[in-house]
Design a protein around this nucleic acid. Structure first.
Lengths: 219, 219
DNA sequence: GCAACACGTTAACGCTCACTAACACCAGTG
DNA sequence: CACTGGTGTTAGTGAGCGTTAACGTGTTGC
């Protein structure tokens, strides 16, 4: 089904390994020799495939932003045909979870190394990101018309933070459950967050609010 | 009460500015000359106060991890005396939100530049982080005994991601609400996420779940 | 007045690292 | 076999940057 993975081109190999390394140690923390070694060639051989290190990062970030946006649009059109905002939001959440779990390194890069791009590329990525956020905000506002836009946007960003937390879940080794369990956990948490957003928030208290007076801690 | 801020020492100035710059452009992306310029001195003058660039990062990360843990412990003891896990969790959430909003740059560094540390420092930071997470996990498991530990831990990490999303909310310029509004929004979302964790999850559907069959997108 | 010290300066060193140059191998193609 | 294009190699270069060295200056205490 989904991705073909049939014939991973050299370019694709390089991009994949570069994404992993950039996510692990940061853009400046990885040398071109390491990227080359990761795909079996060494150092400057990369320059047969890319104009430079920056070009790799640019292609990665533009690519991921574009794919996120495209996937989101498809899901809005697909699930939105029924006119049910809840179903659309659920589909967006599922899609983002898939993405976060499939392409962990890219998700990490996505909000970490944006400033390293040339102005034009950075503007493009920002625009794609903004469109993706707007997709979510629109759906959230359809679902909860009483929620002001600024809160909806804040909630969307916060839920992105929640869903993108997968890199911190210690992928290998840790006695952590399978992918399906992680998927359903994240799904449940995300839905719970949005559900809380929908609650009025003025009348009823959210939960045990704790006494705000005792601001101990923070020494 | 809490922090004095009375006489910000040179050391503290440097740490504060270094934190901001590291968070903005990454550890490798900032030069010592820039850090010096940010506090009015230039370049190698920093070496009168720190052994090196690494030492600044180490002190920042150890400091934030320690303060987070200390604050969390205080809140557990303070609110936990009443024996009400919900109040303890609420207090932990409030504390973490305060921290995320007060020390945005540090929160960003916290899960971004950890690998740049010497082994000893990195181990120390990891240990402090782990203790802090365990604090939360313990409370969550008291509050929802039916939730297995792996899920509780995953949920805690995910909520950290949610609360730490504040750096992405575009602090200056954007027509975004005041601090109080952001605080209450994050608080509501976090409580909602944990509430969803508490729901059984086996019997009832969480929300509109979307049809999992139509895995469009992700081309 | 004058050591002693805290704190800052500029100049230079040495290392890392992205990138380039020059060359080698191998597959088609006529 | 010669030619060409794609892909790799190693050696070298130039810039950036963390760090050190050597030096200057104001304040303190005898």
């Amino acid at each position: 089904m989904s991705t073909r993975t049939a014939a991973p081109t050299r370019r694709e190999q390089i991009l994949s390994e570069a994404a992993r390394l950039f996510a692990e140690r940061g853009f400046h923390g990885v040398g071109v020799d390491e990227i080359g070694a990761a795909v079996g060639i060494s150092g400057p051989g990369l320059y047969r495939h890319f104009a430079g290190k920056d070009a790799m990062l640019a292609e990665l970030l533009v690519g991921i932003s574009g794919r996120l946006l495209d996937g989101g649009k498809l899901r809005v059109r697909g699930a939105g045909a029924a006119g049910d905002p809840a179903a659309v939001l659920a589909s967006l959440i599922d899609g983002h979870i898939d993405f976060a779990l499939d392409d962990r390194p890219l998700i990490t890069l996505h909000d970490r190394e944006l400033d390293r791009l040339r102005d034009s590329d950075r503007k493009l990525v920002r625009q794609l990101q903004r469109q993706y956020v707007e997709l979510w905000v629109t759906v959230v506002r359809e679902l909860y018309p009483a929620v002001p836009e600024s809160q909806a946007r804040g909630a969307v960003h916060a839920v992105f933070g929640l869903l993108n937390s997968t890199p911190h879940l210690g992928s290998p080794g840790g006695g952590l459950p399978g992918r399906a369990a992680t998927e359903s956990l994240l799904r449940r948490l995300a839905h719970g967050a949005f559900a809380a957003l929908g609650e009025t928030g003025e009348s009823g208290e959210v939960g045990g609010m704790g006494e705000p007076g005792d601001a101990t801690g923070r020494g």
